[in-house]
Every structure is written in structure tokens, then in C-alpha cells.
Design a protein around this nucleic acid. Structure first.
Lengths: 206, 206
DNA sequence: GGACTTACTTGACCTGAATCAAAGAGCGGC
DNA sequence: GCCGCTCTTTGATTCAGGTCAAGTAAGTCC
């Protein structure tokens, strides 16, 4: 009933508007969700990490383009099978509801970033998020960026040049260090969060 | 088990982080969902219209500030009661899931607007949305704006001055007409949609 | 180990929207 | 009917980030 399938970094998994026979979740790696305008402008609307869910059981076409950001493996269910499962096991439905409400909160958080944050704050926010995720996976203060500069720009509503400049400036100010183009580390995460404009972690480190 | 409560335009319904004893849906009028940063920057993250749902049954504080945009009436359930209802009636849960997935799609659509559209496109998109909603409520080509310029700016990630200038420019170009500050009409919705940058309505009016 | 290619950085310049500053325009209160 | 609100428009100016244009660095393919 469930199957696994993998894609290499850069491969397109689903095209906007394409037929969507499967739903599923990420097992390993990282994928991006993007929408684009006819004239070619692109905006990433979600970054999928392990355990994140993709697809709608009640829709038969994809609303977004899905692209593998790194090598990625999905666990897939046929849409019909998944619907049956939902109908038969209420706690799966409850879990789906919770996950989609969490995604909604995350999307709305991102709206503040897109609408109101400066380029510097946007970049700092993304880096801090990635570092936080790495920390909770057991690698504190250091992470490998799963995204190209291009993908970062698309996620942040910026151009690639602006992302690059802000990374350079954060590095020169000592807020982050870089190991090559993809490796980042940060000795002072609170300082980075301040640069990100969300100081609301708040909790004194008593 | 359910109760009704009304607020006047401008009144705050819920503060960010406040205790949230109720969930519910809008019966009449219109309310805004906003998040703000410590330094006062504000971004609207949702515009609630009749039938839209507010609150999370599984969270006990509000994630957003909710403010009445017009006089507004809610139908409210105690959170505990609502959870019982969800557990007992699967099709209510299914409906909630569908609604939250629709909200998620809408939030992601808005991310393109915030991240990639120009001020002109943003304003045109909002006006077109409002006109479309009015049309489906039986008032084609004409609508009363439920939002002040301030609220529009907050929704669109712009300043109030920019919103005002873009409204003026759309009016001067003949894409819209205005009756006072709040009334708008549009003889050529497709042209407005083109100005909005989403030409994908596509459907020939055959 | 050079020739491509792809990803990233840096610089110079420009422009769209923000900011700062004044006016209008309604509108409720008395 | 005038005062004092609040909401909106308009103008002048500034500036953050976009655009255009070169570089640089790190692979990968013969």
C-alpha cells in the first residue's frame, strides 16, 4: 500500500497543475514547493523537510511545483488508498488536521518575513531557522545549507545577488562563519536571532 | 452549546498570545488576522469573511491578533465542546481538514503576492479579489471595500501612501471607478486581473 | 591538465516604494 | 454651523534592493 521513491537533487518531482496520483511524506532529504507567474517570477511557498506531508488527498492536480533541493526520498500512498485510510482511522485524520494547521501557522509566519522584513533580516531568519533545525537534530551551531543561493532568494522574495551580499555582510560582521559556500556556523545564535528581527525567543538562559 | 457575539468595526477581538477559550466562525461582517514584530511593524496574515473559521481547537492561546474590520458577528463554541464534537462527528473533522487545507493554499497564494508582485499588482489583486467575492454574492462589478487604506497596506505589505497612490493611478487609467473612498467598481474585470499579474483566469467567456 | 559549466560574489548604477511633510475631506459632537 | 477628529491624498526626497555586467571558484568532462 505504501511505496518509496527517490529523486536526485535538482530533479522536478511534480509540475504545477500536473496530475497528482499520490500523496506522501518526506523520509530523507529536502524538497521545495514553488509557485510561479506567467512572466517567470517565482516564489517558494514551502520548504519540505523529513516528516513533512505533500499533496492533497481531495485534489487531483498539484497546486505547486515540487523540486528536490537535495537527494530526497518520499514515502508515497495512492490517493484513493490514503482516502480510505483517512476514513477508517480517525486519529490519522486528526493528525492530518494538526499538521495542516501547523503548516498554516508556518505559512503565515513566513508572510511577515515576506511583507515586512528587510533583506538582512530575511537572510538572518533563514539561517537561524536552518541552524535551529540542525541543533535539534543534534548538530548545534553548525549546518550545511540544503539550498542554493537561487533557492534561498526564491524562498525569501529576494534576488540571488541580494542574498549573496547579505551573507557576505553577516559574515564580515562576525555573526556567522562559512565553510565553503554551503557550510555555515554561528557561535552566537541569540545575536543572529536579533539580526533576524525576532527577538521573541526571550527566555533568559537561567 | 454554541453562542453568538458581535463586535463593532475597529474593536479588538483577540490579542496575540491571549487566552483562547473559544473557537468559531464568522456569521456576518469581516475581521482581520495580524501578526506584529516588537518594533511595531505589522503584517496582516488573513482576512476573515463569513463562514471562515477562527482559532485552533488544540491550542490554548491565540497566535494572531484578531480585529473587527467591519461590524462583525461570530458563532462561537467553547474549545472543549468543539473538541468533543470533532471526536464524535468524523465529517466535521473532515470538513475542518478541508477548510484548513484551503486556507493553506490561500496563504501560499498570498506569499507570491508579498514576495514578488509590484505595488500596482498587489493593489489590483486585492481589488479584483474583493470584486470577485462581491460578484459571487450577487453584486457584480461593484463593491464596498471592507478595509481602510491602513488595513489594505497591512494586508499587501505596503505603506498606506503607496496604496493610496496606486488606487489613484488605477483610477486615472480607467481600470476602476470610485464612489467615495470605499466604493469601487470595475467595468472590465479581465483588464484588472491583467494588471494584477494573474492572467490565469483564462476561461474564455463563451 | 586545460576547456566548459555551474554556482557564487562583487561592483556600478537605477528605480520603485518608503519616508517625511502637508494638505484636503468627511463626519460626529455640541 | 463650526471644531476637532480620523482617514485619505498628494508632493518632495531618500534609500534599499533590483538590474546589469564582470569577475572568481569549484567541479566535471575529455
Amino acid at each position: 500500500m505504501k511505496s518509496y521513491r527517490s529523486w536526485r537533487a535538482g530533479e522536478t518531482i511534480l509540475l504545477e497543475g500536473a496530475d497528482l496520483p499520490f500523496v506522501g511524506s518526506i523520509v530523507r532529504g529536502c524538497a521545495t514547493l514553488t509557485r510561479s507567474m506567467e512572466d517567470g517570477r517565482v516564489q517558494m511557498v514551502g520548504l519540505l523537510m523529513p516528516s513533512d506531508f505533500v499533496g492533497r488527498h481531495d485534489r487531483d492536480t498539484a497546486a505547486y511545483e515540487v523540486v528536490a533541493a537535495t537527494d530526497v526520498t518520499f514515502c508515497l500512498f495512492k490517493r484513493g488508498d490514503f482516502r480510505t485510510m483517512l476514513a477508517e482511522t480517525p486519529h490519522v485524520m486528526e493528525r492530518m488536521l494538526q499538521m495542516s494547521l501547523d503548516e498554516l501557522d508556518a505559512a503565515r509566519d513566513w508572510m511577515i518575513l515576506l511583507g515586512r522584513k528587510t533583506a538582512r533580516e530575511k537572510v538572518a531568519t533563514l539561517l537561524a531557522n536552518i541552524l535551529r533545525r540542525a541543533a535539534s537534530a543534534g548538530h548545534p551551531l553548525r549546518a550545511e545549507l540544503p539550498l542554493t543561493r537561487d533557492a534561498m532568494a526564491s524562498y525569501l522574495g529576494l534576488t540571488i545577488e541580494t542574498v549573496s551580499r547579505q551573507m557576505t555582510s553577516l559574515r564580515k560582521e562576525g555573526l556567522i562563519e562559512m565553510q565553503g559556500h554551503r557550510g555555515i556556523s554561528c557561535a552566537d545564535l541569540p545575536a543572529l536571532l536579533t539580526a533576524a528581527g525576532d527577538d521573541e525567543d526571550g527566555l533568559p538562559l537561567a
